[in-house]
Simulated assay, not measured.
Amino acid sequence: MPISADAIRGYVDLMVLSLLRDSPSYAYELAQRITSMSGDDYAIKQTTLYSAVKRLEAGGLVSSFAGVSPSGKPRTYYRIADAGLAYFDLKVAEWRSTKSVVDRFIDAASEGVSQ
């Protein structure tokens, strides 16, 4: 079942930062990797991705530099900054807490328990 953009909106930055932890990348490649890693359950729109990398860059969490793609085309690459690594860790902890709280409600509903 495809994931709606509304459901994942708050986690796009986390996904981008997680990919940039591995290596610098350009926007199209990031979009392809997001789709691939999601098992085709989520395909990010280019406008959403560009907004995310620009927001992360404005916040000092990533930096950009000119490079050339494997096909030889000029590209703007993004790399995670030290502040981005710290922010990533913070957002992972936040995600785990959020998931834990939501799981409690889902589990209670599945068991027919109300509080």
Score class of each variant (00 low, 15 high):
Ser69Ala: 15
Ala7Ile: 09
Ser71Val: 02
Gln115Thr: 13
Gly67Lys: 01
Val62Asp: 04
Leu30Gly: 09
Leu85Tyr: 12
Gln115Asn: 14
Val16Asp: 11
Ser38Gln: 05
Gln115Pro: 15
Ala86Tyr: 03
Ser36Glu: 15
Leu17Gln: 07
Lys99Cys: 01
Arg79Tyr: 00
Val62Ala: 05
Lys99Pro: 00
Val16Gly: 07
Met15Cys: 14
Thr76His: 06
Ile80Tyr: 01
Gly39Val: 00
Gly112His: 05
Ala5Pro: 13
Ile34Val: 10
Arg33Gln: 14
Leu17Ser: 10
Thr98Met: 00
Ser23Gln: 15
Leu17Asn: 08
Val16Leu: 07
Thr47Lys: 04
Lys54Val: 08
Leu20Val: 08
Ala93Lys: 07
Tyr50His: 11
Ala86Ser: 08
Asp6Cys: 01
Thr35Arg: 11
Thr48Lys: 09
Met1Asn: 09
Thr48His: 15
Lys99Asp: 02
Gly72Leu: 06
Lys91Ile: 01
Ser51Arg: 12
Ser114Glu: 15
Gln32Met: 13
Tyr78Thr: 00
Lys91Ala: 09
Thr76Asp: 04
Ser71Gly: 01
Ser97Lys: 03
Glu57Cys: 03
Thr98Tyr: 02
Tyr26His: 10
Ser23Trp: 10
Val62Gly: 06
Thr35Cys: 09
Val62Gln: 01
Asp89Gly: 08
Val101Pro: 00
Phe88Pro: 05
Lys73Glu: 02
Arg75Met: 14
Val53Trp: 04
Gly59Phe: 00
Ser23Val: 08
Ala93Phe: 01
Leu85Thr: 07
Leu14Ile: 10
Ala108His: 06
Arg79Glu: 08
Leu85Gly: 12
Ala7Trp: 03
Ile44Tyr: 07
Val102Tyr: 06
Gly10Ser: 13
Asp41Thr: 12
Leu85Glu: 14
Lys91Gln: 13
Val92Cys: 06
Val12Cys: 03
Thr76Arg: 15
Met15Tyr: 07
Pro70Val: 12
Ser64Asp: 13
Arg55Cys: 04
Leu17Val: 07
Phe88Ala: 10
Ser69Arg: 07
Leu20Met: 08
Ser110Gln: 15
Gln46Asp: 12
Ala27Ile: 11
Arg33Asp: 10
Asp22Met: 06
Ile3Tyr: 11
Ala52Ile: 08
Ala31Glu: 15
Ser23His: 14
Arg33Glu: 15
Leu85Ser: 11
Ser64Lys: 10
Glu111Ser: 10
Glu111Trp: 03
Val12Trp: 06
Met15Leu: 15
Phe105Ile: 03
